[in-house]
Amino acid sequence: MALTDEFVDLQRIAAPQREAQWQDLLSRTHLDMAVQLRQGTEPRSFRAAVRRRWLEDLALVDVRCDACLGVRDEMLVRRADQRRIAVTVARSGTERVGLGVGSLQLRPGDALIWDSAQPAWFEVPKRLLKRTLVVPYPVWRAAGGPRLAGGGVVVDSASSAWRMLRGYLDLLSGSPSPPGTVESARNLALDLLVAATQGGSVPSGDDTELHEQLCWWIDGHLDRPITARILAEAHGVSERTVYRAFARAGETVAAAARTRRLTRAREELETTDASVTETAHRWGFADASHFARAFRREYGCAPRDVQADPLAGGTGGTRLVHPSRMAGNGRTRTAI
């Protein structure tokens, strides 16, 4: 199912109305606040746009804007009809943010989780791109989210939970349809946000064991379609649980199946006289061209480059080594 989008570009708004429209737009997509352009900025030269993408009751908001500033004072906090928790990540440019009595500067890659129950202010000195996930406070607490001391928490950008959350938000923002259902995408984003708040650690235990079981099942069923729903039904768990187990392992169901199919296909090409087309069909690829593209992304060469030489009785040319088997290389490329 496609995600629901709302998009507004102030370039389509008459210059005299842009400042007021920008305040209204930020108030509707984030929080009620008083907003103005930075001193000396002409309304006709001010550029800004917002896209809001709904994940059921969660909102993923992408903002790009020129220099401006805003304040959310005690009166606006008291007037608010709904309390929210949000995580904001700066993608380009900088933003100075104040919460309660403290303040900090967000630079590209920095992230802040904040509570709308606190007065706040922001200042954007020059063009900014940022992404925010907005969560209703009751939803946050029901998911196990903690109360935020001082109204906000600076995210540990090195934590595994934050890296997964940021990557997942990038995926949701860049794709017209989420992996799985909108509900499962919403639940996983919420789970990762709670984990990122709680010290950046990602729970293991049952999820790790389940992930191993799911991968074992995938290995034995590579000759048939593999989806989160099929895995969930085979193991008596929900699709949400399957998505979470793979996300916490740093991969997706599709990538896990594709990588294993490519491994089997490569072994077949290296040790038999099967053609590229036969191998592609045997391991579930739509056609030889699709297989060749996926193979090159994974191994950096064409399938024919590793085919067994029937005359020499071995592989043709130099034997290529999968990155995960290279000494000193802890990274494994995942086919997309």
Rank of each mutant, 00 (worst) to 15 (best):
Arg51Gln: 05
Ala49Thr: 02
Ala59Val: 03
Leu55Glu: 03
Leu31Lys: 08
Pro43Lys: 09
Asp32Ser: 13
Asp62Pro: 01
Glu42Gln: 13
Leu60Pro: 02
Trp54Gln: 15
Met33Gln: 14
Asp32Arg: 09
Val35Met: 08
Gln36Thr: 14
Asp57Arg: 05
Cys65Asp: 00
Ala67Arg: 01
Leu37Tyr: 00
Val63Leu: 09
Arg47Asn: 12
Val35Asn: 05
Leu25Ser: 05
Val63Ala: 05
Cys65Gly: 01
Glu56Gly: 04
Asp66Gln: 04
Ala67Asp: 01
Leu55Gln: 03
Leu31His: 12
Ser27Tyr: 02
Glu42Val: 08
Val63Gln: 03
Leu55Pro: 02
Asp57Asn: 11
Leu37Lys: 05
Leu37His: 00
Leu60Glu: 04
Arg47Pro: 05
Arg53Thr: 14
Arg38Phe: 12
Gln36His: 14
Leu37Ile: 01
Arg38Ala: 15
Thr29Tyr: 08
Cys65Ala: 09
Ala49His: 05
Thr29Ile: 04
Ala49Asp: 05
Arg44Ala: 14
Leu26Asp: 12
Met33His: 06
Leu25Tyr: 08
Thr29His: 08
Val61Met: 02
Glu42Phe: 09
Gly40His: 06
Glu56Val: 07
Gln39Leu: 12
Cys65Pro: 00
Phe46Arg: 05
Ala34Ser: 15
Ala48Ser: 09
Arg52Ala: 14
Arg53Pro: 03
Cys65Lys: 00
Ala48Lys: 00
Arg64Ile: 09
Gln23Phe: 04
Leu60Val: 02
Ser45Arg: 13
Ser45Ile: 11
Leu31Glu: 12
Leu37Gly: 00
Leu25Asp: 05
His30Gly: 08
Leu25Trp: 10
Thr41Asn: 03
Arg47Tyr: 10
Val35Thr: 13
Arg44Lys: 13
Ala48Pro: 02
Arg64Asn: 04
Val35Asp: 06
Leu55Ser: 04
Val50Pro: 02
Ser27Cys: 09
Ser45Leu: 13
Ser27Pro: 04
Asp24Val: 14
Ser45Trp: 11
